[in-house]
């Protein structure tokens, strides 16, 4: 069983710059930030290494940080420019009974994160959900389709973005109340 700082040190030694930092000042558990294009390697390492053995991905969540600047377009509609979208990974080791939280952040306009589907199969649908609702693209995901919204939902329309705007109509049905 290892705590977050020990795990951070191990990862830092192994991956260097790909491990961006550790945030201990959180209300829940410490969060380790990772490079979005290296996360699959970090994940595989965490899963396979003796003494770490993170064999279970408990949850994978897409988050809109909404930390960009608010801009109004020509019609007076407010949207968010720049800033980041994040993915959080909650890992658990059934064998060693320890937990860790990882985080990757990518640019809002071009949010690309490596898929961890081939590390933990659980990630398959979770990543599809994060793609569907927040619009994070997972590179090398085998089947990155929408999972909850209809397949023909407008491209680039991701409902859990903080600046999401509902369409007026979907297939001829009025959407707003």
């Amino acid at each position: 069983m290892k705590n977050a700082e020990e795990i951070f040190e191990i990862l830092k030694q192994q991956f260097g710059d790909a491990i961006i930092g550790i945030d201990k000042d959180t209300p829940t558990e410490p969060i380790i930030s990772v490079d979005p294009l290296q996360i699959h390697k970090v994940g595989a390492y965490l899963r396979e290494t003796d003494g770490l053995k993170f064999d279970s991905l408990m949850c994978l969540s897409g988050v809109d940080d909404a930390n960009g600047t608010k801009v109004k377009d020509a019609e007076g509609y407010e949207f968010i420019q720049s800033g980041t979208l994040s993915v959080y990974y909650h890992l658990h080791s059934v064998e060693l009974k320890h937990k860790i939280t990882l985080k990757v952040s990518a640019q809002r306009e071009d949010a690309k994160v490596e898929s961890v589907e081939n590390v933990w199969k659980t990630a398959d649908w979770h990543e599809r959900e994060a793609y569907d609702l927040v619009g994070i693209v997972f590179l090398n995901h085998p089947d990155l389709r929408r999972i909850l919204m209809p397949y023909d939902w407008a491209d680039g329309s991701h409902p859990l973005r903080k600046d999401y705007k509902n369409p007026e109509f979907y297939q001829g049905m009025k959407v707003p109340y």
Binding site: L148, M149, P159, Y164, N166, M173, K174, V175, P176, Y177
Partner: peptide, 20 residues
């Protein structure tokens, strides 16, 4: 009948089956 608890923030809910 009308969208129920999802009437305002339900981006995915039809606000009343009588629209269809």
């Amino acid at each position: 009948n009308c969208g129920g608890p999802y009437w305002e923030h339900g981006y995915h809910v039809l606000k009343g089956i009588d629209r269809v």
